[in-house]
């Protein structure tokens, strides 16, 4: 069976950085297909196609072996704890996972709160940080626009990704602690990589070569 090899690429912030990096390489995405609404995009290499997926869904497609390779942020990987191989730190998409509060609110102010409420898309990383800091808090799970939570009283602070800090500044928020760092990672399906290394490793090397050439 000679199936098309699928690579899962992220939509959104990481995808916006990735697509220009691939332009002119063997894994460049078909420009016409990119402009359409289709989510399966041919690449410049016959037999290799890209799936465009949301970050939170992407690891599932790779873990199940639907896509052989994928690119996803390490923050997402750490939250989901899927059984995936992580072949390389690609370096781009670097950002910080930070505790952010309204300007003028310090980490000590937050520590002193008897009932701290933290809004986040990253409960696992937040819980790990709270345990390290010997703190307890009520976690308010959110899936987007976390910056609004402290402004509207939903939470005292947020734990979110910060790249340039522009969004925080626009909402009058500041970083009060850095919990971790994230960057784009090349992931592979364990089964595909271990059972068909002759197909998957060259594709991974092509992808790494394409990104390295543009670095």
């Amino acid at each position: 069976m000679n199936q098309t090899l699928l690579i899962a690429f992220p939509k959104g912030r990481l995808g916006d950085e990735l697509v220009p990096l691939l332009a002119g390489t063997p894994l460049a995405l078909d420009a016409a297909a990119l402009k359409s609404r289709v989510l399966r995009i041919p690449t410049a290499t016959p037999g290799v196609a890209a799936l465009l997926l949301k970050g939170a869904d992407l690891p599932r497609y790779v873990a199940a072996g639907v896509a052989s390779l994928g690119i996803v942020g390490s923050d997402t990987l750490d939250e989901m704890d899927m059984d995936l191989l992580e072949l390389a730190d690609l370096g781009f998409g670097a950002c910080r996972l930070s505790l952010c509060a309204k300007a003028g609110v310090s980490l000590e102010d937050l520590r002193a709160k008897p009932h701290l409420r933290l809004a986040t898309k990253f409960p696992k990383a937040t819980e790990a940080w709270l345990a390290r800091e010997d703190l307890t808090a009520e976690l308010v799970p959110l899936s987007s626009s976390a910056e609004l939570a402290p402004l509207l009283g939903l939470a005292d602070a947020i734990v979110d990704l910060v790249q340039t800090g522009g969004t925080l500044k626009a909402h009058g928020l500041v970083e009060t602690a850095i919990l971790g760092r994230s960057s784009a990672r090349l992931v592979a399906a364990r089964g595909a990589y271990l059972s068909e290394p002759g197909r998957i490793r060259p594709l991974a090397e092509t992808l790494l070569g394409a990104l390295k050439a543009k670095a």
């Binding site: 199940a64 399906a189 089964g191 595909a192 271990l194 059972s195 068909e196």
Partner: peptide, 11 residues
């Protein structure tokens, strides 16, 4: 020792 088949998702 681990046994795989090409294309299998698990050992």
């Amino acid at each position: 020792l681990r046994l795989w088949a090409p294309g299998a998702q698990q050992e």
